[in-house]
């Protein structure tokens, strides 16, 4: 099976600060990581490869600074990695992002399955996977927790409101994988060294994809942000209840009964 995993590098959101004066997000000094759910997508792809053979290619859109994270994906077991990187891709909403990623997928034809994480930890719109499938004109199965290949079909278990269902579909198909549905493997030490020293990342610019600049990035976006604000958390009392275990329990019981 030829498997493509879309992977994003995201800031560690607990380190993100909000500048109340400028109304902007402060990203300086914030560490990055492979988006959590995308690691689950990569693990799902590697498991499919372990079971049925094939190739896993990691695909990302972003700045050159993503490179070490793509090499980490290689160290985890991906066979190849492609970075779609161009200034004109910047500032994209989900419409323009999914458009570029779909064009990247087309470049990697033939493929059987595209896997994405269900959401990014920063934007968390959950819209990019179904939108990529929309551009590609292939079926999309979302919130998948288990995938297997049965004959000529892909069989997937997906969550729905208050339950789950099992669907079957012939490839090509795009699956978005649930955060936390598996335990991503650790990078292999020797592969990591090899990836860092010898692996050559394939970088594609807009010249390779051939979009009119107005169709991608900020300009190619359909939505715009008119303002940011911090979601006000209510003021909390933050009273620490102290005392012996009995005293604490008594006080808690009063609060709970109130």
């Amino acid at each position: 099976m030829n498997l493509i995993v879309c992977l994003k590098v995201t800031p560690k959101i607990e380190q993100i600060k909000f500048d109340e004066q400028k109304k902007t997000i402060v990203r300086e000094g914030v560490e990055n990581e492979i988006n959590e759910a995308d690691k689950n997508a990569l693990e799902a792809a590697l498991k499919l490869k372990d079971a049925a053979g094939g190739k896993v290619v990691v695909l990302s859109m972003g700045p050159p600074s993503f490179e070490p994270f793509l090499k980490l994906a290689i160290a985890m077991g991906a066979d190849d990695a492609v970075l779609l990187s161009d200034r004109v891709f910047g500032g994209a909403d989900t419409y323009a992002t999914s458009r570029v990623l779909a064009a990247g997928v087309e470049k990697l034809k033939p493929y059987d399955m595209v896997l994405c994480g269900e959401a990014s930890s920063d934007g968390s719109t959950e819209q990019v996977p179904p939108s990529i499938a929309g551009w590609l004109g292939i079926p999309h199965v979302s919130y998948v927790s288990e995938i297997s290949v049965v004959g000529d079909r892909v069989r997937a278990r997906r969550e729905v409101t208050d339950g789950h269902e099992v669907v079957e579909v012939r490839p090509p198909v795009l699956a978005s994988v649930q955060l936390g549905c598996n335990s991503p493997r650790f990078p292999d030490f020797r592969r990591k060294r090899w990836a860092e020293k010898e692996f050559k990342l394939r970088v594609m610019s807009n010249q390779d994809l051939g979009f009119a600049p107005a169709d991608v990035g900020l300009e190619g976006s359909r939505t715009e942000v008119t303002g940011l604000s911090r979601m006000r958390s209510p003021e909390r009392k933050r009273e620490f209840i102290k005392g012996t275990e009995e005293e604490v329990a008594k006080r808690l019981a009063q609060i709970v009964r109130a």
């Binding site: 989900t94 959950e126 819209q127 939108s131 969550e159 729905v160």
Partner: peptide, 23 residues
């Protein structure tokens, strides 16, 4: 913005060429 609603909206926005604001 249920799981099904989200899956529909993401694909539909592309089909319609429409902007989509998430959940």
């Amino acid at each position: 913005a249920t799981h099904n609603g989200t899956a529909l909206a993401g694909m539909l926005a592309i089909r319609l060429g429409a902007g989509l604001m998430a959940h």
